[in-house]
Design a protein around this nucleic acid. Structure first.
Length: 120
DNA sequence: TTGCTGACCGACG
DNA sequence: CCGTCGGCCAGCA
């Protein structure tokens, strides 16, 4: 049998999901980042969709993962429907001082936190 | 086992 | 300014 893709590990011996969670936990309170930025940072620039999938799976994670601080590249709360109720994601962000209008983060460029720049 | 599908993104036409 | 498409990895039928 060929090696299953299921347990494929990258060069740092961590699964793709583990690396995603690691970065998400580093997002400062009151800041947000994007699926694509995370994907780029962990060396898989074309795997932005998987970052979203990882957020979906993060509900089963025991630790705290601030999935609400991850939005799409233009600052829209595309993942809001995956939270326990409709506007939980927005409430969490607003409680951290982020302003939102029609699922769009206002002044997105000011709260955007890019791991590719902030982390070395 | 194969074959979708997804909280995305960039490239094309 | 649209719409569409390929790609990446994991999970499920």
């Amino acid at each position: 049998m060929e090696r299953s893709s299921k347990n494929r590990l990258n060069q740092e011996n961590q699964s793709f999901f583990d690396r995603v969670y690691e970065v998400v936990r580093l997002i400062p309170e009151g800041r947000v980042t994007t699926y694509g930025a995370i994907a780029r940072y962990i060396g898989a620039p074309q795997s932005a969709r998987l970052v979203g999938w990882a957020m979906n799976a993060s509900h089963y994670w025991s630790g705290f993962i601030p999935a609400h601080r991850v939005v799409n590249r233009i600052g829209v709360l595309t993942g809001k429907n995956h939270f326990r109720y409709g506007n939980l994601m927005q409430e969490l962000l607003e409680s951290e001082g982020i302003k939102i209008e029609n699922d769009q983060i206002e002044e997105f460029d000011k709260v955007f936190w890019d791991p590719y720049k902030e982390l070395i």
